[in-house]
């Protein structure tokens, strides 16, 4: 069982990204370029080729290569860029699936995590049920859990008709179920320690004005606890962005799977996985920045560490 301090250490590691004037400007610029490209790319491909044919790069790789050839000394860099441009359209599809699976996993996981954590802190028998669930899910590898769901229970064989076809490959449903269940366990740990850090006097004061225990938890403890849980939540979001890559091993064509498939056909592993790493980094950095923003926006003067950031 982890203690709150553990979470903080990891959180700082994840979210404390390079600062400083120039670094910051570069980071923002890179973010604008990345998201600008990605949104245009998705718009183009979903709307049936708004700017260029579906799946084709915005700028032909050959153009970039010939551009590089005219500048001595930079030919190598332009070659690399041309290579990236050639495969980015395919990777952008994988990025979409990575993002969707992560966001939905966190979102639905949250609704399981809140009752789990409330049970852990305030429950009697339910406390042990919740403890068992979180310990089991946090004590085994996510990849093993995905194997259980996909190979063992064949979840993707039982996708109800109206959901069938939402994802190109029904294995994505198995991955999503895995992410929801796994994320619920981790989120409940973060929320639990956040709830426990809410001063007990708050609950007492809530009861003293006549709120029932459930209402006092709902209106007094949870609003504070969930704010304390934001750093942990950031952590979890970043965790899931990265670990959603494991869905590749149950055949889900997310970002890593796409990159891996391309690499095994063109054998340019180094280049492909460098690009992939950069794309994941872009997602992770965006997520951590976004969550810092959320944390600042929801911060309440004098409450927890929110104001000190």
């Amino acid at each position: 069982m982890s203690e709150p301090v553990v979470d903080t250490t990891h959180e700082e590691g994840e979210t404390r990204l390079s600062t400083g004037g120039l670094g910051r400007t570069l980071l923002v610029a890179a973010g604008v370029v990345f998201w600008g490209w990605l949104l245009l790319r998705w718009a183009n491909d979903w709307l049936g080729g708004l700017f260029v044919p579906v799946g084709q790069p915005f700028v032909a790789p050959a153009t970039i290569e010939s551009l590089g050839a005219s500048i001595p000394g930079l030919a190598g860099a332009f070659d690399a860029l041309a290579f990236a441009v050639e495969y980015l359209p395919a990777l952008s599809e994988g990025l979409w699936l990575t993002l969707v699976l992560t966001v939905l996993g966190i979102f639905f996981g949250f609704f399981i995590a809140v009752p789990l954590s409330v049970a852990r802190v305030y429950g009697n028998l339910s406390k042990y049920v919740s403890l068992l669930y979180t310990e089991l899910l946090r004590g085994t590898p996510l990849l093993a859990q995905l194997f259980v769901l996909y190979f063992g229970l064949n979840i993707s064989g039982y996708v109800p008709g109206f959901l069938d076809g939402v994802f190109a490959n029904n294995a994505a449903w198995a991955a999503l179920v895995g992410f929801i269940l796994n994320s619920a366990a981790y989120q409940s740990e973060y929320i639990r320690s956040a709830l426990q850090s809410v001063d007990t006097g708050q609950l007492t004061a809530g009861r003293a004005i006549g709120l029932s225990k459930v209402d006092a938890i709902r209106y007094v403890v949870l609003p504070q606890g969930l704010r304390f849980a934001i750093p942990g939540w950031t952590n979890e979001l970043i965790y899931l962005i990265k670990y959603s890559s494991l869905a590749a091993f149950i055949t889900v064509p997310e970002l890593f799977k796409r990159a891996n498939d391309i690499a095994s056909s063109n054998f340019r592993y180094t280049a492909m996985f460098t690009i992939t790493a950069v794309l994941y980094l872009a997602l992770v950095i965006t997520a951590s920045r976004m969550m810092n923003y959320v944390e600042d926006r929801t911060a309440i003067p004098g409450l927890g560490t929110g104001s000190g950031r």
């Binding site: 001063d199 006097g201 708050q202 007492t204 004061a205 809530g206 009861r207 003293a208 004005i209 006549g210 709120l211 029932s212 007094v220 609003p223 504070q224 704010r227 309440i300 004098g302 409450l303």
Partner: peptide
């Protein structure tokens, strides 16, 4: 019903216990 009772009795705490959020 303790919640009914507590409507009738106000309490002020030593360490205030204002709802921090």
């Amino acid at each position: 019903d303790v919640n009914e009772l507590r409507k009738e009795v106000g309490m002020v705490f030593q360490d205030f216990n204002l709802f921090a959020h």
